[in-house]
Design a protein around this nucleic acid. Structure first.
Lengths: 220, 220
DNA sequence: TCAAAAGTGTTCCACTTACACCCATGT
DNA sequence: ACATGGGTGTAAGTGGAACACTTTTGA
């Protein structure tokens, strides 16, 4: 366990993936609960060690797939924290990624020890390892990305209404948006393609369905 | 040396600091040359391992101070690369920071093996360890930061003319800016304070000296 | 016919951009 | 007097923000 070179630490590198979605107009994050010591009962961002010859990006993709079964979603590196755990001497380094997923495509992992679940960002439980800071940085980044990228493609099914899309924005930004301005801005960005299909949901006028021109990250 | 758990690699964490300045209207980066194998003769971004119980930020500050003697400058984490070296099996992780410094305050380290020097970003030498990618990411980030923060405070002495400031922007952005628009925008941002002092440099009207209201990072 | 959500334009304001001349000084 | 960089204003265009009514459908 002890390092052979006392003057230079050899920390373990962990890769964490903060996975976000929007369900029922709530911006939520996937957390896992530790059912064994240490930090029993506290919730945390999923993650783990790097495997042999695995790149950081690959490890993030693998973790995401393990937790949710999905791949090909918006996933990017967020920040690297060197001080999430203050009790581990020598300090491990956590390279944190974040992902945006469509919850309807997600099949949560079922594990004996760690039980994953979605939590509203507005009502987080007690978190392990200073994960509050991580989530705050992530929220800030996602908020910014929404403004100038097509990141939202990753939170919605292939076909969706403009009202759906606006709902996603409002849930994440935490404020209401003006319908007309929102639609104009979205359509002007030319990230969306209209379809002939409509969604007939209830006793009101059917909404036109749109899809993203690209389901890969694009900047405005 | 060998890990006790073969399925999980335990990579070394290195902290790199890409240090930038503007000299003679050129955007330059500080590189060090390796005078021993491997990569003899190639230039690289300075960096090194983490010391015991040292945070990532502290390591970055220490590295910056070792190379330049300066502290209290614009310094922030850029990105973490897991694949800069492809020959080291198991892969080390490089947490890269970038700093902006006023070159007149810098006293470059003199070392037996590594000789540091400033290189124009427009004419980089052959770099070690895929450092080109790192510098490209850094340039992009700095370009963006200039637009909506006071980051330039870190590239200039305490007192400077608006023409000096504009020169810094132009050197980094790589294009000329309109003098009147630049001045209006800068003064409107209320990041600058005018002084009574003027700079008498040559046979022309003396320029008013300004200083930044804050010499810590501030967003517009 | 009513309830419910879909869809649509215009005005105002703030900010960006383009652009050219006079000013203060040293030689 | 002249060369050199310092310093200033205005008009046009662009993008964001505020704001309310008509349309289509199912019950």
């Amino acid at each position: 366990m002890a390092s052979r070179t006392p003057s230079v630490a050899r920390p373990v590198v962990a890769v964490l993936v903060a996975i976000f979605t929007v369900v029922e107009d709530e911006f939520r994050v996937l957390l896992i609960q530790r059912s064994a010591a240490p930090d029993l009962g506290k919730w945390a961002i999923p993650g783990g060690g790097l495997q042999q010859d695995e790149s950081l990006d690959s490890a993030a993709v693998r973790k995401l797939e393990e937790e949710t079964g999905v791949t090909d979603v918006f996933l990017e590196q967020l920040y690297t924290f060197g001080d999430l755990d203050d009790h581990t001497a020598g300090g491990s380094v956590a390279v944190v990624y974040f992902a945006l997923v469509d919850h309807t495509r997600v099949r949560l992992a079922e594990r004996p020890e760690w039980q994953p679940d979605w939590f509203p960002m507005a009502e987080l439980p007690v978190l392990a390892l200073r994960n509050e800071r991580v989530l705050e940085v992530a929220r800030q980044r996602i908020t910014n990305k929404l403004e100038y990228t097509n990141a939202a493609y990753s939170l919605l099914p292939q076909f969706f209404t403009l009202t759906d899309l606006q709902g996603v924005y409002e849930s994440i930004l935490g404020r209401r948006l003006d319908k007309r301005n929102f639609r104009r801005r979205m359509l002007a960005a030319e990230l969306l393609l209209g379809t002939n299909r409509t969604a007939k949901t209830g006793r009101h006028r059917p909404a036109r369905l749109y899809r993203f021109a690209s389901r890969r990250p694009v900047e405005f």
